[in-house]
């Protein structure tokens, strides 16, 4: 069971690295005046404010947390 999970984890990480490599291979320097689409408020890479309370309940109801800009400690969430 654990071996299967480790295998699927390795596969996922390899896939992420593969797509990252493709993305970086197509890198170009984008000037400030060319960033109108990148500067759109929906293009933000951090979690949006409206997601805050959703991330809060997910961090209480699930065992995993972190790497998403949310809190990684503090507060109970006991119930």
């Amino acid at each position: 069971m654990k071996k299967n999970h480790q295998r699927s984890t390795a596969r996922m990480i390899a896939l992420a690295l593969f797509f990252s490599a493709i993305a970086f291979a197509s890198c170009t320097t984008v000037k400030e005046y060319q960033k109108n689409k990148l500067n759109d408020s929906e293009m933000t890479l951090s979690a949006r404010k409206i997601e805050k309370t959703e991330m809060s309940f997910q961090s209480y109801r699930e065992g995993a947390s972190g790497a998403n800009g949310g809190k990684t400690g503090g507060g109970c969430g006991c119930n």
Partner: peptide
């Protein structure tokens, strides 16, 4: 920023 339409972010954390 990868190009005029695509940007990515990698995050590693330890708690």
């Amino acid at each position: 920023i990868i190009n005029k339409r695509l940007q990515v972010m990698f995050i590693a954390e330890m708690i």
